[in-house]
C-alpha cells in the first residue's frame, strides 16, 4: 500500500517537473528561433500566460462529445508516452512505469494522441480540420517507418524492448551510446524525429499559410489550454525517449536537461532554415533515404 502511494507521489512529481520543463523549454526555443530571425522574442514564461489566458476565457464552443474527447485523448497520449519512459536512469522519482517491452507501448502512444485528435477535429465540422488531420495522419504513417526501423535496429542490437535496459546497456562512456555503436539507426531515428516534432520542413499539418492551421482550427478556450499543456508534456516525452534510445539516457537531471535541450535545439535549427514540404513530398522523403538508412541499420544488425 505504502509502495503504491509512494509511486503515485513520485509520478506526480515527475509529471509536474516534465510539464514545467516542457513549457519552459518551449519558451526558450521560441527565443532561440527569435534570435535566428534577429528578434528578442517572447518572454520565456509566455507559454504559462497563454495557458492561463486560454483557461480564463469566458465562453467556449462545444461541437459534440468527440470534440470534448479529442483533447482528452491527446492528453492521454502525451501522458501515456511520458509515463512509460524512464526519464532519469536509476532515479526512483523519474523512473516512471517502465517495464520490459515498454518501447512498443510508447510507440503506440505516440500514434494514439493523433488518432484521438482526428476524432475531435472531425466533429468540429470545420473543413480545415479534416484536411489538417488527413495531412497529419499521412505524414505520421510515413515517419513511423524509419522510426520503427531504427527502433528495431536498436532493439536487436541490445536484444531488449525495455527502455531501461537499453539505457543500462549504453552506460559507461560516451562510446557506448547507440549514436556511436549504431550510427545508421541514430540517423534514421533523428530524421524521423523531425517529422515527429512537426517543425519545419514537416510542419504542413499545422501550417497557417497552407490552408488549414490543422486539427486545432476550432479548438478554443480551455480545449486549447489543454492541448498546449499536452504539447509541453508530449514534447518532453519525445525528447526523453530519443535521448534514451540514441544518446545514452541520463543518470541525473542535469544531464537530462542538457541532452534534451541539445536534441530540441537541433530540430529548431533545422526548422529555422527550411521551408515546408508538401504532404506528398514529405511522405516521399520519409519513404526514401531515411527508410533505406533504417533498413541498412536493421540489416547490419541481422548480419
Amino acid at each position: 500500500m505504502n509502495a503504491i502511494l509512494t509511486k503515485a507521489l513520485y509520478t506526480l512529481i515527475s509529471l509536474f517537473v516534465i510539464t514545467n520543463y516542457g513549457l519552459l523549454l518551449g519558451g526558450t526555443m521560441a527565443r532561440v528561433r527569435a534570435k535566428v530571425q534577429g528578434r528578442i522574442g517572447q518572454p520565456v514564461w509566455q507559454p504559462y500566460l497563454d495557458i492561463l489566458k486560454n483557461n480564463f476565457k469566458r465562453t467556449g464552443i462545444y461541437h459534440g462529445v468527440m470534440f470534448y474527447l479529442g483533447p482528452v485523448f491527446r492528453l492521454a497520449g502525451g501522458l501515456g508516452t511520458y509515463l512509460f519512459i524512464p526519464a532519469v536512469y536509476g532515479s526512483a522519482v523519474f523512473s516512471n512505469f517502465s517495464f520490459s517491452g515498454d518501447l512498443l507501448l510508447v510507440m503506440y502512444f505516440i500514434f494514439f494522441g493523433q488518432l484521438g485528435m482526428a476524432l475531435g477535429a472531425g466533429q468540429s465540422g470545420h473543413p480545415y480540420s479534416p484536411l489538417g488531420v488527413s495531412r497529419g495522419l499521412a505524414q505520421m504513417t510515413a515517419f513511423e517507418v524509419p522510426f520503427a526501423l531504427a527502433v528495431i535496429a536498436v532493439a536487436s542490437q541490445h536484444q531488449t524492448l525495455s527502455i531501461t535496459e537499453l539505457v543500462a546497456a549504453q552506460q559507461g562512456g560516451i562510446l557506448n551510446w547507440v549514436a556511436f555503436t549504431n550510427p545508421l539507426a541514430m540517423i534514421a531515428g533523428m530524421i524521423s524525429f523531425l517529422g515527429m516534432t512537426m517543425g519545419n520542413p514537416f510542419s504542413v499539418v499545422i501550417a497557417p499559410q497552407e490552408i488549414p492551421i490543422g486539427p486545432p482550427t476550432e479548438m478554443q478556450s480551455s480545449f486549447l489550454g489543454m492541448l498546449q499543456t499536452n504539447r509541453a508534456i508530449f514534447q518532453g516525452a519525445k525528447l526523453v525517449l530519443f535521448m534514451n534510445l540514441f544518446f545514452g539516457g541520463a543518470t541525473n537531471i542535469v544531464s537530462m536537461v542538457v541532452k534534451t535541450f541539445l536534441i530540441y535545439l537541433y530540430t529548431v535549427v533545422v526548422g529555422a532554415s527550411f521551408p515546408r514540404f508538401r504532404t506528398d513530398q514529405s511522405i516521399r522523403f520519409f519513404l526514401g533515404v531515411p527508410t533505406l538508412i533504417g533498413i541498412a541499420a536493421v540489416v547490419i544488425q541481422m548480419l
Partner: peptide, 21 residues
Amino acid sequence: TSRFDMYRYGIQPRPTPRQSS
C-alpha cells in the same frame, strides 16, 4: 518583425478567430 517585435509584449498573430482575443 525584428524592428519592433511585438512578441516581446506577449502579442502574437493567430490564424483563426476561435483562438484569438
